[in-house]
Design a protein around this nucleic acid. Structure first.
Length: 569
RNA sequence: GCGCCCGUAGCUCAGCUGGAUAGAGUACUUGACUACGAAUCAAGUGGUCGGAGGUUCGACUCCUUCCGGGCGCGCCA
């Protein structure tokens, strides 16, 4: 694919231009305007050194290349300060054959991460609370990054850092003991649990002493009280069951669950370690690690009452992941509001002497904004739930199917695939760093740049392949493609591996979503201008091969985003 | 007050490590289905890239500053 093509071109040019192939490779770029060819080489950088105007250099280099033109180049043309290369269609077709048609299971894969492990902490909800649309975002981004890492050859461990510890469990246990009779734990355990949570906070507004009862009950839990511990375990179980059900809707499953409670007996040793390394400083009765930048607040390690804190737990957890689980890279898919916290934690780890601290990254994502509501608050039960969003999308897709394709078989399954795909795509198509204004109309818009648009494009491919009369579409080209739309599509398909590489490099799934839209737009143009099946249903087999390749790429890229690719819709 | 992030077409957003006339979708105006599936395609209208300086052969991209929005800032997680 593109990586290979660039390398090959760079190697060939290297001897002709007497420049190191690496420096050519890193300068080669894809022109925005397709009329400028497939790859461009800007020569501005040489102007000063060679004391010549860029257009002159471009002209001279072009002449040099033309005198001994590499086999893969169809045309090289100087244009202002650029050397524009148009590659031979036959070469591109051969390239598609070897990298896509001959090995569909390896499309876009790289060995860049081979032998390395990456642990990705994502989704990580808090026990007893329903997952909100914010968790949905964390989940789809995290899962996409898992998939991207796998495509780069990494061994991936998707980790659920479940919020299963803290005073809220004292409150919850206390609330359960008081009011459990009023709720139907048998039939709807999770809803009941959440109802208790909301009720406790409501009543605590009026009767602040409830908070003390909660704190006392939590102390019992901490000291291993049997009854409370049993309750706690049960709450965790109820919650995990609910989360697994929701994740299953998105096709998500973590490889490992390590809740906060897992680190309970590692907190003291971690503090000891910090103390031994002389990093702890007393401040207002608490123990902190000061940061290098004086403007940055210090990292709180131990409260004045001796209890540990959020940061302590994350430090212990990072050490566990990187040292015990022997991870090479540690990723945290957590909202931007935690930016300072992770900066502090990573700096502390670095001060502790862990060289791998630089391989820990906070993959932050923007917050949902709400027009009227302000921030969501699960305490007050004001929250847009993960499941509502997904279910609404599925319902709407059902209506659309009823209207557009009432004959469709297994409507429910396809409605789910399309509805879920729409939700995932909608979340992944924008840069994760940006805040998003929640708007039902936008979430449920399935036209234009959207998941269903991509799925529909693939459905059209599938439909063609079905109607072609081939049992299996031809995996080889017979003649050189002539249609300009076909050649352009071919070129876009070949850049898939480069897209995956870039997407992983900056941990941004929207790169892949944007690419999918590019492929679909080009396919649609190609489709509109070229007759692929003629009147007698005889086929233009080379175009069919291209259609098949398009579908393979679409399905692979959709898979990276964890979106299904139905055959019909 | 301090720190970080964002500010591109009416609206929602792309624009990778600075590169050739700033691109999609949506909305609006047109045109294309007795169908290779119109959840589509083609065309048009629409942008002083928040403002002002600076660096550079070249700035939406880098630096400074201001404005607007978001998030965070020691005993919650």
């Amino acid at each position: 694919m593109l990586t290979l093509i660039k390398t090959e071109l760079a190697n060939q040019l290297s001897s002709l231009l007497e420049l190191p192939s690496e420096s050519i490779l890193e300068r080669l770029e894809s022109p925005k305007n397709p009329e400028h060819g497939h790859l461009a080489f800007p020569v501005f950088a040489f102007a000063k050194e060679w004391k010549k105007a860029p257009p002159v250099i471009a002209q001279e280099l072009a002449d040099k290349i033309k005198a001994n033109q590499p086999a893969l180049v169809a045309q090289v043309s100087p244009m202002s300060g650029f050397l524009n290369f148009t590659l031979k269609t036959q070469y591109l077709m051969d390239c598609l054959k070897t990298t896509v048609l001959d090995q569909p299971e390896n499309i876009g894969r790289s060995q860049a991460g081979a032998g390395k492990r990456v642990i990705i902490d994502y989704s990580s909800p808090n026990v007893a609370k329903p997952m909100s649309i914010g968790h949905l975002r964390a989940t789809v981004i995290g899962q996409a990054i898992c998939n991207l890492a796998k495509m780069q050859g990494f061994e991936v461990v998707g980790l659920n850092h479940l919020g299963d510890w803290g005073t809220q469990f004292g409150k919850l246990a206390w609330a359960y003991q008081q009011w459990n009779q009023e709720y139907d734990f048998k039939n709807s355990p999770f809803e009941s649990l959440f109802a208790l949570y909301v009720r406790f906070h409501e009543e605590a507004e009026k009767r602040p002493e409830l908070n003390e009862f909660g704190a006392e009950t939590f102390k019992k839990l901490e000291s291993g009280d049997d009854e409370i511990t049993q309750l706690w375990k049960w709450f965790v179980e109820i919650s995990l069951k609910e989360y697994d059900r929701l994740w299953a809707l998105l096709g998500v499953k973590h490889d490992l669950v390590r809740g906060e409670s897992f680190y309970n007996d590692r907190l003291k040793p971690t503090e000891k370690l910090l103390e031994d390394k002389g990093l702890l400083v007393e401040s207002d009765g608490a123990m902190v690690v000061p940061m290098d930048d004086p403007k940055m607040p210090p990292c709180l390690i131990r409260k004045s009452d001796g209890a540990s804190l959020y940061a302590t737990r994350d430090i212990a957890s990072a050490i566990y992941r990187m040292e015990e689980l022997k991870s090479d890279i540690g990723l945290y898919v957590v909202g931007v509001d935690q930016t300072l916290h992770f900066k502090q934690v990573f700096e502390v780890l670095s001060k502790m002497g862990y060289a791998w601290a630089k391989d820990c990254h906070h993959i932050s994502f923007g917050m949902y904004q709400f027009k009227n509501m302000g921030r969501m608050s699960s305490r007050k039960g004001q929250i847009i739930e993960f499941e509502d969003v997904v279910q609404k999308a599925i319902e709407l897709v059902k209506e659309i199917i009823q209207e557009k394709n009432p004959e469709l078989k297994s409507k429910d399954k396809i409605a789910e695939q399309v509805g879920v795909g729409a939700i995932i795509f909608n979340d992944l198509m924008n840069d994760r760093i940006k805040n998003v204004e929640f708007d039902w109309d936008k979430v449920l818009d399935f036209e234009g740049n959207s998941g269903p648009y991509v799925q529909y494009c693939n459905v059209r491919c599938k439909s063609l392949l079905r109607k072609s009369g081939y049992k299996q579409w031809p995996k080889t080209f017979q003649n050189e493609l002539k249609s300009p739309e076909a050649i352009q599509l071919l070129w876009i398909l070949l850049s898939y591996d480069d897209v995956l590489k870039n997407g992983y490099k900056i941990f941004k799934p929207h790169i892949i979503a944007m690419y999918l839209l590019d492929v679909c737009r080009q396919f649609s143009t190609f489709y509109a201008k070229n007759k692929i099946l003629n009147e007698n249903d005889m086929v233009q087999s080379d175009l069919m091969t291209l259609v098949g390749a398009t579908s393979l790429i679409l399905e692979s890229a959709l898979g990276v985003l964890n979106i299904s690719a139905p055959n019909e819709m």
